[in-house]
Design a protein around this nucleic acid. Structure first.
Lengths: 208, 208
DNA sequence: ACAAAATTGTTGCAAAAACAACAGAAAAAT
DNA sequence: ATTTTTCTGTTGTTTTTGCAACAATTTTGT
């Protein structure tokens, strides 16, 4: 059952030195993966933060997703039939577990614990990813900058309460919400003015 | 491997009268499911068309997703921790296979073929859902109505070529792209004027 | 510790989108 | 077959967003 699943326990298992798993390290700013080759790659972020980003023809950066510890990503989740060039960019030092999805139902030679756990948990792992993506769609489908901000604050307040620190800089947040930075900044000023929120850079306090 | 998977073959198996599966029929306009209860429900649309919809406080309809034959949806994919009230609405007569996800790894009494197939294919089914959702995020993250239209036309042209019929009415398309209908209509007129496209209601022809 | 680079908040202006209202066309209901 | 309802395209007006430029602050790199 969904709530019983613990990805932390799961990822501990990789330490069995399974021959089918690679662990790679990336420095801040490095590209972890592009979506051009290795269509079967499936990755788990073991530590660090990374973004799935794209630049539109106008030079605007779009942060499609933000990955933190135990987020999953990889070529198997991305439809290559598009003109859109997304990359996964390390925001800070990252350790990544890389797995070739072809092997998901194949035990490795030693039938290691990692595989047993992976096969068992895989459905739950990706279901929770779908849940996240659905929330993301709800957010992006909001029409105004104000609604996007309040919607995003709602999500954060579910987790952290009325006061929290954004996981983004203000500039990054505007890329994540797909709005102009200065417009968003203006809207934040309006929300502050109307006493809906207090904000200083990444620190947010909801007053409702 | 991903491309070997065939959901049609899979759904044929449900006919084994598995005791854990329900098949329900819905008429046009009926609500197939809300996201308030039955958190373990997992559904496959066997026939018909349905939308995952929400109405914002302003009365605007948002079509978050469109489901057609063999689309999957259900409460397990949706985060209840939100104020957002989505429902799945039948656009036409729908037949839906309903399954309780608790049972995914449990064989039914007769260990029927349906379960064998479901357990085997489940990862691939949901991975292809993630692929779809990622494309959807890319689309919604576009900032202008023009880019959304062209992005959506691109997706359709990958599948159907330069001429195709929209799976939406013009009004529905605006809800799917989260833009005002009349603004979108105006932008379509501009695209026609610039000889980028020909359009008459649902019929689209790309001229580039 | 200092210099360089990036981030932030602000504002005027231009561009785009939302809103509103309407008439004609198409689709659905009776 | 006819009426009713919904959909479509259009356009004027208002509101919101994007763009550009700038100074102040913070962060980063050396």
């Amino acid at each position: 059952m969904k709530d019983d699943f613990n990805i932390v326990e799961f990822t501990k298992e990789f330490s069995t030195n399974c021959s089918k798993v690679q662990i790679k390290n990336f420095e801040k700013g490095e590209t972890i993966t592009t979506f051009l080759v290795n269509r079967n790659q499936f990755c788990i972020l073991l530590s660090g933060t990374a973004d799935l980003v794209k630049y539109d023809y106008n030079g605007n950066k779009i942060i499609a997703e933000r990955f933190s510890q135990y987020s999953i990503f990889g070529e198997i989740f991305y439809n290559i039939n598009t003109n859109n060039e997304f990359i996964v960019e390390a925001k800070e030092k990252c350790q990544v577990l890389i797995y070739s999805y072809d092997d998901i139902n194949e035990k490795c030679k030693s039938n290691c614990k990692f595989h047993q756990t992976l096969v068992k948990c895989f459905p739950d792992i990706i279901i929770s990813k779908i849940t996240d993506l659905t929330s993301r769609i709800e957010l992006l489908s909001r029409r105004t900058t104000r609604d996007k901000l309040l919607g995003y604050f709602d999500l954060l307040s579910k987790q952290y309460g009325k006061s929290f620190t954004l996981p983004f800089s203000v500039t990054e947040l505007s890329n994540y919400l797909s709005v102009d930075r200065s417009s968003m900044s203006r809207e934040l000023a309006v929300l502050k003015n109307e006493k809906f929120i207090e904000q200083d850079r990444r620190k947010i306090k909801l007053l409702y």
